[in-house]
Design a protein around this nucleic acid. Structure first.
Length: 503
RNA sequence: GGCGGCAUAGCCAAGUGGCUAAGGCAGAGGUCUGCAAAACCUUUAUUCCCCGGUUCGAGUCCGGGUGCCGCCUCCA
């Protein structure tokens, strides 16, 4: 099975073949956040998308090196620190902490490296800008350095624009000092009081785009496999990165460009400027992290996804089904010893035998249910991978997790052949479900927060069970009602009453 | 103005030329249950925005139209 990814550069799904000769090393760079405010759910989507892509690449056996930057100096940061009247580095420090808190709360793992722009100014950025000037791709005016877009053949190849088409509709006020309106800043001279770093062109700070070129190449080399980010970065950010990087090295910068779609509110892009954003912190006050992940993953990463409580509620309910199943089977399996799977498979194969596979032959034991179940769970696993292989189609993959869930429940309540240990097959299925869920960061074991101590729950259960023995339904129902208001749901099963925490 | 994307059931959402159009949520009926919960079973799109075309065959490809959205300024 081969992995296919949609490459913005070619506008097509392509088979994923890493640059590295041995074919197992993958280098990936993703544009992270600018730290001047709390992250919203849109930032979470980008981070989650590439976290899952990294997970799946690893699952496929790739050795992934993942770099995700933090932009810790730019105009917005300066602007905001002036508004708040605090030093820019305090603002940045605060929001880096908040960023890490939010990501951790969502269960999004860190990248292997998380470099900051300011840590690479002397080391990489100044050098790269100098190199571009030396090669004639950039020019200095009054302490600013601009990249000369017309000098770079192929400008516009990522976003599908031609430089000549872009002039007419340009909405920006043209800076007279630039040789061409499309030229963009590699280095910006600083005004008095602004944060600044020394450079051959005087005190200043890097332009936005150059940090990503400098840092990605510093960690991953001049050419690497995957570069990701939100769709809004295609132009100008990523277009400019390509121009700078390829002009400097003369080599192809990135093989696969991956871009995630936006989170929307009422069909409009969620953004700071529209003010229609929901912060990760606010959402996590209302819904568990796993619900938020499930919601985000239930739509393909390139498509827009509309954010609403109704959608989160749907995700919550679907996910609850998985949680109940996990819980049920955990209880069911922990108290019994389980026959090894190989033994069960041996039994099925040998008692029936190859020649008596005819189900109508009643002389031999009928394992059709067991065999079918094994076939079904294997089919779900396979289809999950096929879905993920198709440009990380998590929405389709979740469909197969649901199918697997139904199969497990169905098998669990079905009549099975007493010659084999049913629990062995159930455990096998649950293990697969957990393993696949792990790729998406779902179904992780987490300690449920109990509203009241467990002993108290048990004593209430005892009270209720005694009442039930005496057919005192009024008392029994009162106990259930009480636990329900505390957030504990009771289920009277054949093997006794079990309880769970409301999600 | 330039470039790009999307339109599938009540809602959400897969599906990129070919068996009966995944899956979830909601709804209806049933089994189980003291009642519930959970689970299971049955059921809910002769049809994929509209009009043409290509093809033995199209939700899927091509042309045109309508509607919505994004990028071209900071943006995940």
């Amino acid at each position: 099975m081969s992995l296919k990814v949609y490459n913005t550069l070619t506008g097509k799904k392509e088979e994923f073949i890493p640059l590295n000769k041995d074919g197992k090393k993958v280098n990936m760079y993703v544009c992270g956040v600018t730290v001047y405010d709390d992250c919203h759910i849109g930032h979470a989507r980008g981070a989650l998308t590439f976290d899952i892509i990294r997970n799946y690449l690893k699952y496929k056996g790739y050795d992934v090196k993942y770099v995700r930057n933090i932009t810790d100096i730019d105009d917005k940061i300066i602007e905001r620190s002036n508004e708040l009247n605090i030093p820019w580095y305090d603002l940045v420090g605060k929001y880096i902490v908040e960023y890490y808190k939010d990501m951790a709360a969502l269960g999004i793992k860190k990248a292997d490296m998380e470099p900051k722009a300011t840590e690479h100014i002397k080391k990489d950025i100044v050098g790269l800008v100098s190199q571009l000037i030396d090669k004639g791709y950039a020019y200095e005016v009054d302490g600013d350095v601009y990249f000369e877009v017309r000098k770079f053949e192929g400008y516009g190849k990522l976003s599908g624009r031609r430089p000549d088409d872009m002039l007419s509709g340009a909405r920006i006020a043209v800076d007279e000092r630039k040789r061409d309106p499309l030229d963009f800043a590699l280095w910006k001279s600083s005004k008095p009081g602004e944060p600044s770093w020394d450079s051959p062109w005087g005190k200043g700070r890097p332009g936005w785009h150059i940090e990503c070129s400098a840092m990605s190449m510093s960690y991953l080399g001049e050419s690497f496999d995957i570069h990701g980010g939100g769709k809004d970065l295609i132009f100008p950010h990523h277009e400019n990165e390509i121009a700078q990087s390829e002009a400097a090295t003369g080599k192809p910068f990135v093989k696969y460009w991956l871009h995630n779609g936006f989170v929307q509110v009422d069909k409009e892009k969620m953004s700071k400027s529209l003010g229609n954003f929901f912060t990760i912190k606010d959402i996590l006050k209302k819904y568990p992290a796993e619900v938020v992940r499930f919601f985000l993953l239930s739509t393909h990463y390139r498509n827009p996804i509309d954010f609403s409580d109704a959608r989160l509620e749907e995700a919550r309910k679907n996910l609850e089904g998985f949680c109940i199943l996990m819980n049920t089977l955990k209880r069911q399996l922990e108290s019994v010893s389980i026959t090894p799977l190989s033994e069960v498979e041996y039994t099925i194969k040998n008692l029936r035998g190859e020649k008596s596979d005819d189900e109508s032959d009643w002389h031999t034991p009928d394992f059709s249910n067991e065999k079918n179940f094994l076939k079904q769970i294997e089919g779900c696993r396979k289809n999950f991978e096929v879905a993920m292989d198709d440009d990380f189609n998590t929405a389709e993959a979740i469909g197969y997790l649901n199918k697997l869930r139904t199969q497990i429940n169905r098998f669990n309540v079905s009549k099975t052949n007493p010659l084999v240990d049913k629990n062995t097959l159930l455990k096998e299925a649950i293990d697969i479900l957990k393993k696949l869920g792990k790729i998406l960061g779902l179904f992780e074991e987490k300690k449920a927060v109990l509203p009241i101590p467990e002993e108290e729950i048990n004593s209430l259960l005892d009270k209720r069970n005694k009442a039930r023995e005496n057919k005192d339904w009024v008392t029994a129902d009162a106990v259930r009602k009480k636990l329900d208001t505390l957030g504990i749901i009771l289920e009277d099963r054949a093997g006794g009453t079990i309880w769970r925490v409301k999600s």
